[in-house]
Nucleic acid binder design. Structure first.
Lengths: 204, 204
DNA sequence: GTTCAAAAACGTACCCGGTACGGTTTATGC
DNA sequence: GCATAAACCGTACCGGGTACGTTTTTGAAC
């Protein structure tokens, strides 16, 4: 396909729309910005904008998602799904976000955290992953058990991410937030593994 | 206040709108029905409809919600939150739906199950309850632990309800579905209480 | 260079959910 | 009866999203 110029221009347009949108969202809040404005500010027609991003929401949520099902599917031979996930998030907390544009990610988190509609949106995203994870887990634990496990795991991961984002959105430096995350991952997965009865200070 | 005629008419109008809406939803599917149609068929203006129901979604989801936070808040003195909830759902499964209009409830379930948007809506409702439950649980388990527990409990309850609704929507008789629910409640709460490591057939 | 087909972008008009506004009916308390 | 407040109404509007037919751009072949 020759690394076409066409593809590059497309990518570039997409980025321009996304950046303009994030800038406006960050400045005035998600709901106060209309897609018409974004399109105009990006020098593009509304139809074109919707060619790149299916919904207004996707402009803000683009690139925000995990892949729990993939982690489980790609786990090593002897590993339980839970152990694989624990290792995954443990590593994520330790090594930080990695190679992404940190500044852009922080704006994204800020924008999302500032809009109830968007946090609802990311929760909906997690719900989709729950289904994928359930399908994966039902291979190992058929019936309702797999679905329950998927739901609980997703709930825990969602909570972890939420706490992490809240910290970032309120100005906690990335380094420190990552450190908190590391501890919280252990807490969350211990809770999943051993249940509420393992909590100290409570009788059964 | 005197049991006014005004109040009665209001109630009546509200019911009429709701019933007309459910009838149309059931016949043609949620998304294929416009609020204009509903308003017209109910002999009411669109504005009036939105006076009674804040959104189109609320027409279909009205009356579909649990009260986990209330159950926890009103639990007996020595009880743990989890025990109170287990008891609550155990009882719900055993005694059936109770005094509600079963036919209407079945239609509602059918309509909801047939529309992804509505399923997402009820999940969003559960997310709201998760927050309330988290606030309740943080009194007992401060910090992230309470939030994690709330998230896991809500996830489990959501899954139970989903399975129950799916059964009803696919024609399983109420009696039998209730029986399944009873067993599944125990499974779900055991899992919450003792964790994934308690599952037979898996090494820790 | 010219030509041509595909595809990207366009403008416009439209649908639908939801709101604002201002005016009209109707129950209720005096 | 009569005033008042509440319920209701019609219409016009907004914002997200789609349909449609047209124009521009692009990659490639000649």
């Amino acid at each position: 396909m020759m690394a076409g110029l066409r593809e590059r221009k497309k990518e570039q347009t997409r980025r321009r729309i996304s950046e303009v949108a994030m800038r406006l969202f960050d400045a005035r809040g998600y709901e106060a910005v209309t897609v018409n404005e974004i399109a105009e500010a990006a020098g593009v027609a509304k139809v074109t904008l919707f060619n790149y991003f299916p919904t207004k929401e996707s402009l803000a949520l683009d690139g925000v998602m995990d892949d729990t099902a993939a982690v489980v599917a790609g786990r090593g031979e002897g590993r339980t799904p839970l152990a694989a996930l624990r290792e995954h998030y443990r590593a994520m907390g330790a090594r930080g976000v990695g190679d992404l544009d940190v500044e852009a990610m922080l704006t994204k988190v800020r924008v999302i955290a500032a809009s109830p509609a968007l946090v609802a949106g990311v929760q909906r995203t997690h719900a989709g992953q729950r289904a994928a994870l359930a399908a994966e887990l039902e291979d190992v634990h058929p019936g309702l058990t797999g679905r329950l496990m998927a739901a609980q795991i997703t709930a825990a991961v969602t909570t972890l991410q939420e706490a992490f984002f809240q910290r970032l959105a309120t100005g906690v430096p990335l380094e420190e937030a990552g450190q908190c995350l590391v501890e919280e991952v252990e807490l969350a997965f211990d809770l999943l593994e051993h249940g509420f009865s393992s909590i100290k200070g409570e009788k059964s």
